[in-house]
Amino acid sequence: MNAKHKIYNWLISATLVVSLGACAGNGQSVAEGEIYDPFESTNRAIHDFNKMMDSAVVGPVATVYGTVVPEEVRMIVDNTASNLGQPNAFVNHILQGDGDGASTTLTRFLLNSTIGIAGLFDPATEMGVFDEPTDFGETLAVWGVGEGAYLELPIVGPSSVRDTVGIVVDLAIDPLNHVVTREQAYYLMALRGVNLIGKRNTYDDLISILLYESADSYAAQRLSYMQNKRHAVAGETVIEDLEDPYAFE
């Protein structure tokens, strides 16, 4: 990618961030802890499509992947994909002013890229240096941008207006995308795709409970996504947000 393209990417990102700030400002007439979902009917249609894709393609492929590919190889795929995600997480930790997260991420990247043989293995986790994944959606949250409306994206799954902008901006700011050749970029994309299949296989039980055993899988997934995101952004369960089950009589 040449310099002109980079500037162009940054401009798109900046425009998106600004317009997002504007959107998030007026749509937020929602009480604390509630979920703003003005696009529910569209989201539900996309949810049905995603579920259909999952049961027809992604789920079965993941099962085959889990059966045919040895665990060691699946681990290597997971480790490599995770290691190549560290530079982008590092940039976002920095943008969030999170020095601890940034240094943990850097330490992991250095350890796993060297002792871990270019990220094939994950000695960092064994040493107690745990992954602290983050993205530009979380950076926006730290900067005070509200989550905005809930969105379910085709294939990608649950998201929010803020996190969707985050996905686009991450593509532009990921340092890896600026050093790889076009050919390497395709391999990277393939690796990440295969890793998503691996994740689908690893979390099969949890995903099955959520998608196929919930009475309203759309609502269940929406709630899980939003609560999990808010928890990730806060870094902990906030006691002010706890509910008092005794309050209802």
Binding site: A215, D216, A220, L223, S224, N228, E243
Partner: peptide
């Protein structure tokens, strides 16, 4: 669990 509350998710369910 990871921010997801039993009370809220069961209420939904």
């Amino acid at each position: 669990i990871e921010g997801i509350s039993l009370l809220t998710s069961e209420r939904e369910e």
